[in-house]
Amino acid sequence: MNKNKVEELVSESKKIPQEVKDWLLELLQSCRELQKRLNKISKYLKEYADNDEICQKIMSVPGIGPITATRLKATIGDIQRFEKPKSIVAYYGLVPKSKATGHNEKKAA
């Protein structure tokens, strides 16, 4: 629901005590301020990722955007510290996709 509509409903309600209305309106204002801050951070991360070669490579993977790319870059650090690609996957606690048919089990890389 639109925050302005919620604010209007709260303000006009005759069933909500004034003290509760004040709290709710204060919380709505806090939500607006937090959303503005999040928007600034998201904008910064997008600009950073758009101008960073490593983030560009990470974002070439389908489904990975600027926020995930910057997070991966920050947490991985120097990629040379990993001996092989599977080490990066293990670092994040991920396991390869498994396909099992009958008695054969294949692990995808």
Rank of each mutant, 00 (worst) to 15 (best):
G77H: 06
E26G: 02
Y91F: 06
E26S: 10
K3P: 06
V61P: 04
V10G: 10
A109V: 05
F82H: 05
Y44H: 15
I79C: 08
D78L: 00
L25W: 06
N4F: 13
E8V: 06
R37A: 11
I88T: 01
L94P: 02
T68L: 12
L38D: 11
K40G: 01
K40N: 09
S42D: 13
K14I: 12
S30D: 09
I54L: 00
A100P: 12
K46H: 13
D50A: 09
P17K: 09
W23C: 15
A108Q: 05
E47Y: 00
E33D: 14
C31H: 12
N4M: 10
L72A: 02
R37I: 15
T101N: 14
P17C: 09
S30I: 15
S30G: 13
E33P: 14
Y92W: 05
V6T: 10
K107I: 13
Q29N: 05
L94I: 01
K21Y: 00
T70I: 01
K86Q: 06
S30A: 14
D78M: 00
I67R: 10
K43W: 07
G65Q: 04
P66S: 13
L24K: 08
I16H: 00
I88W: 00
V10N: 13
C31W: 13
G65R: 01
E26R: 09
I64M: 06
D50G: 03
I64P: 13
V20K: 10
L45C: 10
E26T: 11
I88Q: 00
Q80M: 10
E53H: 01
G63V: 00
K14N: 12
S87M: 15
Q56E: 10
A90P: 05
Y48W: 07
S30K: 13
D50Q: 09
K73Y: 10
V95T: 05
S13G: 06
K36W: 14
G63S: 01
E19H: 10
V10A: 09
T68W: 07
C31P: 04
I79W: 04
Q29I: 07
K86R: 12
